[in-house]
């Protein structure tokens, strides 16, 4: 373990994640899934036998997956923003690893209902395993935090809808048939109110 300091302290990099507030953990899990998706694919292409399954287990945070490689070359601390999708060639050539260990930060932007917003994602890679993920909202205005918490899904523009008779569906889920008693009562009131 000669290359980077981070690889020797995987448990400390993991520890803050368990203390995240709930909503943040949800975001973190999503980010981890998408990032690991990329890492897993790249690992498979490089035919690195160790990279696939540990990576898949990492985001649960239930166990600390210790780095197994002891031969990673001492490379400069990575700073490229696209590193997560861009394997460092020297590391891959010299060992079983596809990625250089280290902490990577990427800034993403998206269109929120409040305008364009940014979110920062920081991941820690050790022996091709993501050992920590942090998602940092970077709000520009007061409503942004609220919208970023809705990251888990999405928000559409105003829905126009399609006519049911133009759709091939088996069932309809809605409220138009709800509460016969209620409808009966309002119908009665209407008829009583008629002159």
């Amino acid at each position: 373990m000669t290359s980077t300091g981070q690889t020797e302290t995987p448990s400390t990099t993991l520890a803050p994640r368990t203390a995240f507030p709930l909503h943040k953990r949800v975001l973190t899990a999503l980010a981890a899934v998408s990032i690991l998706g990329a890492a897993g694919c790249a690992g498979a292409e490089a035919e690195s036998p160790a990279s696939g399954s540990p990576a898949a287990e990492a985001p649960t945070g239930a166990t600390t997956t210790a780095p197994t490689s002891t031969e990673e070359p001492a490379t400069a601390a990575p700073s490229g923003s696209a590193a997560a999708n861009d394997p460092a060639p020297t590391a891959a050539a010299a060992s079983d690893q596809t990625y250089t260990d280290g902490t990577y930060t990427q800034t993403g932007s998206y269109q929120s209902p409040a305008g364009p917003e940014e979110v920062g994602v920081t991941i820690t890679l050790e022996a091709d395993v993501v050992t920590a993920v942090e998602v940092e909202p970077m709000p520009d205005n007061p409503t942004t935090t609220m919208y970023q918490e809705r990251f888990a899904g999405g928000i559409s523009d105003a829905i126009v809808g399609k006519k049911l008779d133009e759709l091939a569906v088996d069932k309809v889920a809605g409220s138009s048939l709800t509460s016969g008693g209620f409808n009966e009562a309002t119908g009665k009131i209407k008829s009583e109110a008629q002159i």
């Binding site: 829905i159 809808g161 399609k162 006519k163 049911l164 759709l167 088996d170 889920a173 809605g174």
Partner: peptide, 18 residues
């Protein structure tokens, strides 16, 4: 599986999705 329409809350003859 079956396909279920999500009834438009403002127009019971329409769906907002399935």
């Amino acid at each position: 599986s079956i396909t279920v329409a999500l009834e438009h809350p403002y127009d019971a003859s329409s769906a907002i999705g399935t």
